[in-house]
Design a protein around this nucleic acid. Structure first.
Length: 259
DNA sequence: ATGGCGGCTCGCAGCCGA
């Protein structure tokens, strides 16, 4: 069975709904996880997404954060948030689809190194580590994907000198991500591409897209049991050039899954 | 370059994002 699995930070689902529907129409992913929906559940555009052929689960709040999972196949075992971590911010959504555990994460931005938000980000990542450690034992076939707000290495940064030590790039953040990956999770994009210059986010300002001044901060991490079935992982830059785009673009992984 | 852009809100300016 072929599976196309996608992550996309839409930066307001209300604003980006037409982009999403257009993209779903042409790309037909089996599973797509969204971040920054910025919608309360009562305002979620459920009917439109069902009409597009998807089952949907979501966890949202006003103004900030908000996550959703869309799937053509049946969604089971839904868990909202991280168990044991009381958080008013809607950043995590997990479910089982086609025998694969899907973990949608919107990692905190962190604001500035050393700030309260940065400390929250590191604590949050430690909690995610514990959660994934437990989940991997229960579900060996697991994919954790979303907006990690961390560029793993300098080749994921357009100007590593300018970004050195800053939030999204700082060593403690990278270390926290490496610790998570050391649980047995591989960066799908790096299974197929070793060069730099590939990004998933570009600032709206200063012609960043045109100059390719971006960061690769949206990731698809695949558990060891699934690595062999992962056949490609690409970043679809096209929607960033559409009118009134999200500042992030979809990251798309394809699998030949026999589970 | 601490700006720039875009989305949000009991808005008309200030926040947050990355």
């Amino acid at each position: 069975m072929k599976l196309k699995i996608v992550t996309w930070n839409v930066n307001s689902l209300r604003v980006r709904l037409t982009h999403l529907l257009t993209w779903l129409q042409t790309e037909q992913p089996d599973i797509i996880v969204l971040q920054e929906t910025k919608l309360e559940d009562k305002d979620f555009p459920l009917d439109e997404l069902i009409a597009a052929g998807y089952q949907v689960i979501y966890s949202g709040q006003k103004t900030y954060n908000g996550v959703a999972i869309l799937s053509k196949q049946t969604i089971t075992e839904t868990v909202i948030g991280m168990p044991g971590f009381a958080d008013v911010q809607c950043r995590v959504l997990a479910a089982t689809i086609a025998g694969i555990r899907i973990m949608n994460v919107y990692v905190p931005n962190g604001s500035m190194v050393g700030s309260d938000k940065y400390i929250y980000k590191l604590a949050w990542l430690e909690q995610l580590y514990k959660y994934l450690q437990q989940q991997l034992k229960q579900y060996p076939s697991l994919i954790v994907l979303g907006d990690f707000n961390i560029a793993p290495e300098d080749r994921d940064v357009h100007d590593p000198k300018a970004w050195e030590g800053q939030v999204l790039v700082s060593e403690p953040e990278r270390q926290a991500l490496r610790k998570i990956m050391d649980l047995g999770l591989q960066d799908a994009f790096r299974l197929f591409e070793n060069t730099g210059g590939h990004y998933s986010w570009w600032d709206y300002r200063a012609g960043a897209l045109h100059r390719n001044h971006g960061l690769r901060i949206d990731h698809i991490l695949v558990s060891t049991a699934l690595v062999k079935s992962c056949k490609s992982c690409v970043i679809d830059k096209a929607p960033r050039r559409w009118e009134r785009p999200s500042d992030h673009v979809p990251v798309v992984a394809s699998f030949n899954w026999s589970g």
